[in-house]
Nucleic acid binder design. Sequence first.
DNA 1: CCACTAACCTGTAGGC
DNA 2: TGCCTACAGGTTAGTG
Length: 297
Amino acid sequence: MPELPEVETVRQGLRPYVEGARIDAVTLRRPNLRFAFPEGFATALTGATIEQVDRRAKYLLFRLSTGAIWLSHLGMTGSYRFEGFKHKEPSRYYEPGEDGKHDHLIIALIHPEHGALTLIYNDARRFGFVDLFADEAASPYLQGLGPEPLGNAFNAATLALAFTGKKAPIKAALLDQRVVAGLGNIYVSEALHRAHLMPTALAGTLVTKRGAPKPVLEDLVLGVRTVLTEAIEVGGSTLRDFRAADGQQGGFQHRFSVYDREGKPCPTPLCTGIVERIVQSGRSSFFCPVCQKAPRA
DNA sequence: CCACTAACCTGTAGGC
DNA sequence: TGCCTACAGGTTAGTG
């Protein structure tokens, strides 16, 4: 489900209720998500106060008063929600019923202003996972990640460096979290459309023989930044089940130019193209064959 | 090191 | 209605 804009939307929804809250109890309702819960995970969280919720790429980072960092990745279908706002007594925290079979992690919180409430992690496919670290440098998941696409380190020069000599299609290169961290299948298709670049163009063809960025790389950087920024502004994209922690659906799905729009007209002004769908490395790519081009090598 | 595929797991949409 | 297939927002392990 979640690419960078969705994870950022989740973070913003969590912050008011989670930051400053003390973790009163933790229940793991199964031994694993994608991976086993780390040894002592529940014990380490219990009693700690969540001081801050940050995001790096598609990871949520809960900074605890103990100094430890609780890391959470939502996979394809992971989501957080709150229950039990009305309950004052910790003993009356939410317990999943029949329809809560994918509620895997239950976290009872006491917030100084909001009182007792329950944070629930739900994940039907269980591609998500959590981990616990002493500090960011100690997390293998955060090693080797490329720059944040909305940060200064993501620019035509750093992209050129990553693309030089690369034979992979630009679609695959942008999905590679070592190149840029946070893009997924939706926003790569959308950014390439904005930059008028074919997803099949080879990454190496966007760089000159001398290793300098071709002008189209500037368009690509701008396309990535603007599509992510606009998506965050409207709360991400809700395809089937994505919700922010407060239950709100995203709105960016109404603004897709090409993603999931096979057979529909290209929205580029004056363009007469019809959106096509192809499969690259096992995943759908959507593009306009008229206004998106592949540069010559 | 690079590039590609299969695998992980469940739910849903569409065709018949 | 039911059955079957294809596909879904991500990452990792394995192969060549």
